[in-house]
Amino acid sequence: MEILAFGVTADERPLMERAFAGDHEVRCLDVFLSEDTAPIAAGYEVVSTSVNADLNGRVLRTLAAGGTRMIAQRSTGFNNIDLEVAGQLGFTVGRVSYYSPYAVAEFAWTLAMAVNRRIVRASNRTRDFDFRLNGLMGRDLRGRTAGVLGTGKIGEAFTRIAHGFGMNLLGWDVAQNPACVELGMKYVEKDELFAAADLISLHVPLLDSTHHIIDSAALRAMKDDAILVNTSRGGLVDTDALVSELRAGRFSGVGLDVYEAEAGVFFLDKSLDAVEDDTLARLVTFPHVVVTSHQAYYTRDAVEQIITTTVANVRDYLAGRRSENTLVPRL
């Protein structure tokens, strides 16, 4: 069988081809699955997609009409898939329920340290042979307070690093993680965490209950010199509200690897296009804000785990098996 994989980067392609070798052929495309590209999948029983694919009802009906029966999503998140329509159409949908949490946690800390120590500004200056220190002053993190929203596997990995820095630990989640409690984390209500934390990192999934969990009220409750980091999902943060607070001179630094309107922008070269998103255009102008293109997961270790799991999901589908990765089972 030949499998069609959308949204495959140049780095991923050899890993994909190697992982499927001996079982199936895989055709890798760098374009993302959307209403415009869905017809390409005609004749492919199994399609693999990336997190920025758009699997709305119309796309799913196009895939079904073309003979696709299985969708293997190469990500943990699946808010881009209309699971109800997928079930009605008889699709099997699988995802990657787990991969290296250290990839994301370490990148969250990379963003935190980059904005705290003004690394991007310093690098840009030295490229111009400007070696002044004005405006580059950061803060020690030891003894300060880290607030972690979401203490699952990634949140726990982030917390362990914070503990290594010697920080006080505050957490919020629907359930406490004993490993975080063992590290000295105190679980509190969100408002208390927002008010007390010097560094806030987001590690909750995007659900109806967490959409814009960082809204105007949450932002106003935070310290004026707090650092905010989001490596989870863009929709957790009300970006317009964040821009308003930044314009008012608040926050020591903000590191964002995700953006709520990133679909159709992130993972693409838009350098020669007119900027249509005024909010994003304004966001990247702040000198103490670092925006990256949803790359926190992008280590060789994590990507290899994602691809290995994707191969296993395809095997399970062909064998009629379910696993913890099955979102919509085969009818």
Rank of each mutant, 00 (worst) to 15 (best):
I200S: 06
L183N: 10
R74H: 10
S252G: 15
V46F: 09
I200Y: 03
P39M: 04
V254H: 03
L199V: 15
L242M: 09
G235P: 11
V328S: 03
L280S: 01
A65P: 00
G152Y: 10
T151C: 15
V59H: 03
K223W: 05
A41M: 01
D208M: 00
T310R: 00
H211Y: 12
I214D: 06
T76M: 05
V314Q: 02
V204N: 10
E25T: 15
I227D: 04
I200C: 05
F267R: 06
N79A: 11
R125M: 14
G234C: 07
L149A: 15
Y297P: 00
K186E: 14
H294Y: 05
R233Q: 08
C180V: 05
A114H: 08
R132L: 05
S293Q: 08
R250W: 08
G255D: 05
N168P: 01
I227C: 08
D316L: 08
R121D: 15
E260P: 07
L136V: 06
D277A: 03
N134C: 00
R13L: 11
P178A: 02
L206H: 12
G147M: 07
A86M: 08
V284G: 04
L228C: 10
A162Y: 07
G249T: 10
L111S: 11
D224Q: 12
T9R: 13
V120F: 10
V204D: 02
L15R: 14
V275I: 13
L219R: 11
F131A: 10
Q305F: 01
L55K: 03
G57M: 04
V258M: 01
R250Q: 07
R142K: 13
N134L: 09
K186T: 14
E304M: 13
V47I: 10
F165V: 07
V8F: 09
L228E: 05
D140W: 09
L256M: 14
L283Y: 05
G184W: 06
G164F: 12
R69P: 00
I213E: 04
S34Y: 02
T292S: 14
D208C: 00
A296S: 15
D82H: 09
V291M: 00
E276A: 09
L193R: 02
L207F: 13
T279F: 02
Q295D: 02
G77Q: 01
L169C: 09
G147H: 09
V148D: 00
R125Q: 15
G87T: 05
S100M: 06
D128R: 15
R233D: 03
M185P: 01
G66E: 00
A197R: 03
T92D: 00
A41S: 11
H294S: 04
L111E: 04
I154N: 08
Q73G: 07
A281Q: 13
A248W: 02
R74F: 02
P329V: 11
V85N: 01
V229K: 07
N313A: 11
A64Y: 02
Q88Y: 01
D23F: 14
G184Y: 06
A42I: 04
L242F: 09
A175H: 12
E182H: 11
I200K: 04
H203A: 04
G66H: 03
Y298K: 12
I161H: 08
I119G: 06
L55A: 13
A122N: 04
A274Y: 00
C180L: 03
G166F: 08
G235V: 08
I40Q: 12
L4K: 12
I306N: 03
R27W: 03
R61F: 00
A21I: 07
G320I: 13
L33M: 12
A41L: 01
V237K: 11
A64W: 00
I3V: 15
A19S: 15
